[in-house]
Design a protein around this nucleic acid. Structure first.
Lengths: 108, 108
DNA sequence: ACAATCAATAAGCCGTGCCTTATATATATC
DNA sequence: GATATATATAAGGCACGGCTTATTGATTGT
C-alpha cells in the first residue's frame, strides 16, 4: 500500500458529488449517520463509507454518543487545500478583491 | 452524458497526482506537450489526455504555435474552487492569520 | 511531394471507486 | 438475556479512470 499525499486524499475525497454533498451537509451542523442516511438517497453503508473516506482525509471527525455516531467538519482539515491554493497565489491575485471582501465579512 | 458541476470537474482534475504535477509544472511557466512529456515519466498520449482533462475543467488553456501546442494555467480557472472554500469560511476562520499574511505578501 | 516532428485520438487492459445486499459489532431497552 | 436500533465491515457487481501502443492529423522543411 502506497502513501498518499494529504492534498491528494482531500481532492479525491471532495471529487465525488455524493461525498461532497455529505460534507457540505455537515458544514450546516453536526449530524448522525442515520440523519445523513435519511437526507440522501443512498444506503446506510454507502454513507458510512463516504464518512470513512472523509475522515481518512481529515475533513471530518466522528463522536460516538450511545448508539449514534455524530460526525462534524474538522475545521483544520481543509488547511492543506488552502495551503496548496496559496502556493500558486501568483495566478489568482486578480481575486484579491474578493478575498479582501471576505476578510471584511469575517471581521464582523 | 450527464452534466457535471464545475467544482466536481476541478476536484476530479486535481485529484490525480500525475495531473496535478502537470498543472503545478505549468504554474512555473508555459510549456509545450513535448516539454511535459520529457519532464514526466509517462507517454505523450497520457500527457495529452491529462491536459485535455485540465482544459475541460477550465484550469489550463492551449495555444498552437507551429507544430507545438503550448499550455498555460488559466488564472481564473480555480475561482470556483476558491468560491467553494469561501462558502464554508465559518470553518476556517482560524486560518485568518495566514490569509492576512498572504494578503500582505501579495501587496508587495 | 515526401519525410520528419509534434500532438490528438482510438482501442484495449487493468486497477480502482462507488454502489448494493448481507452480515457483524456496539449500545440501549425490555 | 433477548430484542431492537445504529453503525461498521464484507463481498461482489459494474462502470470509470489512467495507462499503454498504434494510428491519424497537423505543421514544417527539404
Amino acid at each position: 500500500m502506497r502513501t498518499v499525499a494529504a492534498e491528494t486524499r482531500i481532492f479525491q475525497a471532495l471529487a465525488d458529488p455524493s461525498r461532497r454533498a455529505i460534507f457540505e451537509s455537515l458544514t450546516r451542523g453536526e449530524a448522525a449517520v442515520k440523519d445523513l442516511t435519511a437526507r440522501f438517497d443512498i444506503s446506510q453503508p454507502a454513507v458510512s463509507q463516504h464518512l470513512a473516506t472523509l475522515k481518512d482525509a481529515g475533513l471530518v471527525k466522528g463522536r460516538r454518543d450511545g448508539r449514534c455516531v455524530y460526525y462534524r467538519v474538522n475545521p483544520s482539515g481543509i488547511k492543506p487545500l488552502i495551503d496548496w491554493i496559496a502556493h500558486y497565489r501568483a495566478f489568482w491575485t486578480d481575486h484579491l478583491g474578493r478575498l479582501e471582501a471576505l476578510l471584511g465579512r469575517m471581521g464582523e
